[in-house]
């Protein structure tokens, strides 16, 4: 995703003149900690996917085999462009497979 435009390109007064502004505003820049999913520990229960208030935990058709040999058809990944770092997913994950990692270290 490209970075937001320079002040010269913005519509005066911040008026929104076309649809899709929600897509252009990357709430990911609000984040101080980012959720990192441990794919080995994740049981694919889908709870984080349901709880994420931004709806940006993606259920991808990416098969995955854990170190213990458990086969999954899907993988959950966070879209960091929009993840605002609220930590709800980490809090809700029943197996504590999500770590909130500082953006500043």
């Amino acid at each position: 995703m490209s970075s937001p435009p320079s002040w010269k390109e913005l519509v005066i007064g911040g008026t929104i003149i076309e649809p899709g502004s929600t897509v252009n505003v990357r709430t990911g820049t609000w984040r101080t900690k980012k959720p990192v999913i441990n794919q080995d520990a994740c049981t694919r229960c889908r709870i984080c996917w349901e709880y994420c208030p931004e709806g940006i935990i993606q259920e991808l058709d990416k098969p995955f085999v854990s170190r213990k040999g458990i086969k999954y058809a899907v993988t959950y990944e966070v879209n960091y462009d929009y993840c605002k770092g609220c930590g709800i997913c980490a809090n809700e994950c029943p197996v504590k497979a999500i770590d909130m990692v500082s953006e500043y270290e």
Binding site: W7, K8, I12, G14, T15, I16, V25, R26, T29
Partner: peptide
């Protein structure tokens, strides 16, 4: 168009600089 929307930290500064 939508006039007077919220502008987050990534946008507000440039809009005000234009002003």
């Amino acid at each position: 168009s939508s006039m007077g929307p919220i502008a987050g930290p990534d946008w507000y500064y440039e809009i005000k600089f234009g002003q």
